[in-house]
């Protein structure tokens, strides 16, 4: 197997390398890639879309249709993880710890009783004593991380950022909660149902803005037609349309990141994590 792999790799590599003889040099400013489309994007996008970040302008406006399907890819990944792994009827032994004394109770997998009261906490099978420093620091940091994530989404028009980046940062703040405390705490904050609906709402927001543009008489995702419903001057309407679309992307990416983490870390049981 290794010999055929080596053969295939040498063949492909040789083909690819031989083609580089025809390429323009690295950084050559008059190469076809640097002059054909990108000149228009760089020079005209400020006056056509009023958004300084050229990458966001191309991503959310000129090639916004691609970005919609990219969001659909993220949504697919979340759905696929749910479809493959989610399995809520696997029975296991459960462990409860009496907090004041440190006594551990073990309930057989077939029993249905649970200890009541606030003194018993549900334990993971691989439990270690909670680290107070980590829990406190993370609890303080998480709101700031979330504000930063919202800043990245909102400033996608002016600085590096956008929906995907902000969504991932927001999702990672929730994953930080799951890692520093435990998975059940994170799932109590954002339940499975909320995550599922949020991931769908984000894509629906994106498609909804596009459909609104279509209903108002333009093509799909033609933000210029939104002036009929929003009281904004026509020069800025495209930037607002892009902002709405990026918010939709951020919501979906946030929810799907957490869904993928929760399903992979708990192998679909949603009872204990890493």
């Amino acid at each position: 197997m290794k010999k055929t792999a080596l053969l295939i790799v040498c063949l492909c590599g040789g083909l690819l390398l031989s083609a580089t003889a025809d390429f323009p040099d690295w950084g050559y400013p008059s190469s076809p890639a640097s002059t054909h489309l990108s000149n228009h994007y760089i020079e005209k996008s400020m006056e056509e879309t009023n958004v300084p970040n050229l990458v966001t302008a191309v991503l959310a406006d000129y090639r916004g249709f691609d970005t919609m399907f990219e969001t659909a890819v993220v949504f697919c990944a979340g759905l696929a993880c749910l479809l493959l792994l989610r399995n809520s009827n696997h029975k296991k032994d459960r462990f409860y710890r009496h907090v004041p004394t440190g006594v551990i109770l073990r309930f057989n997998k077939n029993s249905t009783r649970e200890p009541g009261g606030r003194e018993f906490e549900n334990m993971d099978a691989h439990w270690v004593p909670d680290d107070l420093i980590i829990m406190t620091v993370c609890r303080i940091l998480i709101p700031f991380i979330q504000i930063y994530a919202l800043y990245v989404v909102a400033h996608g028009d002016f600085s590096p950022g956008g929906g995907f980046q902000g969504g991932v940062i927001f999702g990672s703040s929730l994953i930080l909660l799951a890692i520093s405390y435990n998975l059940r705490t994170a799932l109590k904050r954002t339940t499975e149902k909320v995550l599922g609906i949020f991931s769908a709402v984000g894509v629906l927001l994106y498609v909804g803005i596009g459909l609104l543009c279509m209903v108002l008489g333009g093509n799909f995702l033609d933000y210029g037609k939104l002036v009929k419903v929003l009281p904004v001057d026509p020069g800025h309407i495209r930037a607002l349309g892009m902002l709405g679309v990026e918010i939709g992307v951020g919501i979906t990416v946030m929810a799907v990141m957490v869904v993928i983490y929760v399903n992979l870390a708990s192998k679909g049981q949603h009872d204990e994590g890493l």
Binding site: L79, A200, V207, N219, F220
Partner: peptide, 22 residues
Amino acid sequence: NYPALLVLAPLVAAIVCSCASW
């Protein structure tokens, strides 16, 4: 707008269907 409707109808149906499943 039929070309856009062609691909949007199953996409919107997929999203609404996944909302409805919850």
